[in-house]
């Protein structure tokens, strides 16, 4: 059984005129020890999906439909204090900007100890020992000297390591990592990715890696879900999706990435931009930009269907034998 199972999730934000649907009918699952990459452009709904799983949707936003099950237990309709119990202890989170995830007024040691005490019944001295072990595990050099330093005394990469230490201090079974490397330089990025992968391997922690960077997905994820306008358009094993994408959007996305070794011919581009939430077209949300769109795409909304072993795509080109376009 999957560790996390999301079924037909729908997240809405009521606005003055109408209700905006940020996540629409999203289903996904993550197994223990698996890295699921969630990729998409800004506004695709990937961060809102992550926030819904850890129960951090800010009102008036709300989960308007669907189910989220963690280790077999339904967690989307729990009361707030039960959610808080799961957050941190069962599901950890790492956000994009390490400077805003840490409290500037407390030392990293204080923040780690506080978090450890909140999630376990260790003594204060034991919690500090555990904090030191965690800092060492995430690769902070000389942790005994650094534990009493404030966040501003760390570099960006080191801060993100501290945030990861905070996320793993209760040994959660799932980590939601929302753009964990986006604010970092490339050489630091590779260090943080290597760290996340090691944690995943050594502790069997599952990771939901939310990013816009296909390169990061390529080397980290086992499976990848591609999101567009609040929906999953394609999901499957990472090699398959990256090498031979089926959905026209994924194809365009892959071709628009400049590659090393390619000549300087113009990049393939998808014209237009992703629709804003209040103007998502009916039918397939991608049809105005799709080179293969037909009359049917303007009316019928495609469902996610299995196309090859373990890869699924939501596109009418692959719908019940009409794939001969």
């Amino acid at each position: 059984m999957a560790l996390l199972q999301v079924d037909r999730l729908r997240v809405e934000f009521p606005a003055r005129q109408r209700t905006l649907v940020a996540v629409d009918d999203v289903s996904l699952s993550i197994d223990a020890g698996e890295v699921l990459g969630v990729v998409g452009e800004s506004g695709a709904g990937k961060s809102v999906t992550g926030a819904a799983i850890i129960g951090l949707i800010e009102p008036p936003g709300r989960i308007a439909g669907g189910e989220i099950r963690f280790a077999g237990r339904r967690i989307d309709c729990l009361p707030d204090d039960a959610k808080r119990h799961i957050r941190g202890r069962e599901i950890g989170s790492v956000f994009q900007d390490p400077l805003t995830s840490l409290n500037p007024l407390f030392t990293v040691g204080q923040q780690l100890v506080e978090t450890i005490l909140a999630h376990s019944d260790r003594t204060a001295a034991d919690a500090r020992r555990h904090a030191l072990r965690l800092l060492e595990e995430v690769g902070i050099p000389a942790p005994a000297q650094r534990i009493d330093a404030y966040p501003h005394e760390f570099s960006g990469g080191m801060r993100q390591r501290v945030v990861i230490a905070l996320a793993i201090c209760a040994a959660p079974r799932l980590i939601i990592a929302d753009e964990p490397t986006t604010a970092l330089d490339v050489s630091i990025q590779s260090q943080i990715i290597a760290l996340l992968k090691r944690l995943c391997r050594e502790h069997g922690t599952a990771i939901m890696l939310i990013t816009h960077d296909m390169g990061v997905i390529a080397e980290t994820a086992d499976r990848v879900a591609v999101m567009y306008a609040g929906r999953i358009v394609e999901v499957g094993p990472v090699r398959q999706i990256l090498r031979s994408p089926n959905h026209p959007y994924t194809q365009g996305l892959m071709e628009s990435i400049p590659r090393l070794g390619s000549d300087s011919a113009p990049l393939a581009q998808i014209d237009g931009a992703m629709p804003r939430l209040h103007e998502i077209p009916v039918g397939c949300a991608f049809h105005p930009r799709c080179p293969d769109a037909s009359e049917r795409c303007r009316e019928t909304r495609p469902a996610l269907r299995m196309v090859a072993d373990s890869a699924s795509v939501a596109c009418l080109l692959f719908d019940d034998g009409c794939a001969d376009d």
């Binding site: 050489s187 080397e219 590659r259």
Partner: peptide, 23 residues
């Protein structure tokens, strides 16, 4: 070092050599 750290989409599943140290 910079070239080694470019995440390459064609390299799915292969790890980059993480580079030690910071600026």
């Amino acid at each position: 070092l910079l070239l080694d750290t470019i995440p390459d989409v064609a390299m799915a599943g292969r790890a980059r050599a993480p580079v030690p140290g910071e600026v």
